[in-house]
Simulated assay, not measured.
Amino acid sequence: MACPCKIQKDLIKTSHVFDPVRETYLDYNATTAPDRALLALYQNLSLSHWGHPMSPHGAGSSAYEIETLARKRIGEYFDLDDSCFFQVNSGTEGIYWAIHLLHKELNNAVFYLSKGCHPCVEQALNEQDIDFTLLDIDSQGQTILPDLELTSIPIVIYSPVNHETGGIDCCSQIYDWATQKGGLVLADAVQALARLNEKEWLMYCHLFVISGHKIHTPKGVALVGGSWIKNHQDNLPHLGTNPVLLRVLSEGLYLHKSRRLEMNDQLSMQTKEIQSMWQNDNLPLVNLTPDHHVPGVLLLGLSIPCDMEKLFMFMAKHRISLSRFCACQGTIKGESTILKEMGVNNDLANQSLRLSGGYKTKRGDWLNFTSALKRFL
C-alpha cells in the first residue's frame, strides 16, 4: 500500500487538487501519465475481449487470441521465445517473484546485491529470509565488483539505470563477472526500459523485470522475463494473466521505443540549457548526477541550508512535481543513502532534489521549476 509522507497529508488537509493540465511534472522516474491511445486501446479491448483466456467458448477464445498476439509482440521486442516471460502487476511484485524463482531453483546460490538497487530489492530478499552480500558502488554510482574466489553460484542483482541518480551501471562488466564464475544476473530494468536502448542492458542479464507504468502504459502490468526462464517452466508462479493489459503493454513498448530517441535528444538539450542558466544566475545548486547517465534526469544538491519539507510543500502548492529518493520511501527528509555510498558530503546528501523529465517535458517546465525555486529561496 502507499506510504504517505507528511507533505501528502498536509496537501490533503489544504484540499490541494492535482490538475494535470496546469502541473509542471518533473517526476517521470516515479511514474508516467497513461497515453491516450493506450487508454483507448485498453477501454476498447476491455469491452470486446473481456473473457477468460482458458474458457471453452467464444469469450474465452477472443481473450486467448489477444493474449497470444501480445505474447508474440513482446517476445519479438525482447528477442525471446513467448514462453520466456510471465505477467505480474508491478515492478516490485516482479522483483519478488524473480528472486523467489531463482532461490527455489538454485537454493545453494549466493545473492549479491548492488547498493545502487531500488529499496524494494533488498526488501524482497529480507521478506524471503534470503541471505545476501551487498556490493559497494563508486563515486559515479557504478557497482564495484570484488575479486573473490567463489565456491557457490553467484546471483547478482543490479539496476542498469539508477532510479535516483539516472546513472548507468557497468552492465557488461557485471555480466562478465557473474558468468565467468558460473553465475546469473537479474536486472531491475524498470528505469532502463524507459530511457536506455535495449542493446545497452538486455544482453547483460539472464532475468529482467520491467513495468509499464514507466512508459505511459496504464498501471497494473509488469513482466519478469529472460532466456533463463525457458528451461525452468515447472516452477513459474501461477499468477494468472490479464490479456487486455498484456496486449496494451505490448503496444506500449513499441510506442515508447518510437519516441525514445527524440525524447532523449530533446531532454539533453533542455537540461544542458537549464544548467547553464542556473550557473549564470548563481543558484545554490550542485549537480550530483553521475557523468555516465541517461538524458533527462538531474540529481541536484542545495548548497545552502534548507528545510526540505517546506521546499517540497512550496513546490507542490505551486504545482511543481519533483522528488527525492524513490516514490516508495514515504518521506522526503533525511539523507540519500545512494549519495552517501557515492561519497557525497552530508549537507548535499540531506538536501538533494531529483528532477526527471519525459517525452512531454517542455523547456518551460524547467523554467517553471527555476522560477519557483528562486521565489522560495
Rank of each mutant, 00 (worst) to 15 (best):
T271F: 14
M263D: 04
P305H: 10
I137H: 07
E149Q: 07
H216E: 15
T271S: 14
G330Q: 00
I130Y: 04
D10W: 06
P56T: 03
G357Y: 11
E200W: 10
E149H: 08
N242C: 08
G225I: 02
E335P: 05
D79R: 00
G357H: 12
I274Q: 13
A70W: 08
S62T: 09
W278I: 06
L353T: 02
S336L: 07
P34Y: 01
M263C: 14
D281Q: 15
D82K: 09
D136S: 11
G343H: 07
D27K: 12
L47S: 08
S250N: 02
K115V: 03
E262V: 13
S15Q: 02
I332Y: 01
N108T: 11
D234S: 09
H57G: 13
D147P: 00
L26R: 08
D19L: 00
D147W: 00
Y175H: 15
N264E: 08
Q270C: 09
V17H: 02
P290S: 05
S356T: 05
K333P: 00
G301T: 02
A194G: 14
L288S: 08
L298H: 03
K199I: 08
A192T: 06
L134S: 12
K199S: 15
I95T: 11
E251P: 05
P20D: 03
S15A: 01
N231S: 09
P4W: 06
F314I: 07
H118N: 13
C117D: 03
D365I: 08
A37W: 01
I215R: 08
T31N: 09
H256T: 11
Y77G: 03
F312H: 15
P119L: 07
S276V: 09
L255I: 09
N89D: 13
S139L: 12
D176Y: 08
E105T: 12
A187Q: 04
L193E: 03
S321E: 08
S62A: 11
N44M: 02
I137R: 02
M342F: 06
C326V: 15
K115H: 06
E127V: 00
L246P: 01
M263T: 14
L288F: 10
P146V: 04
Y28F: 15
W50Y: 11
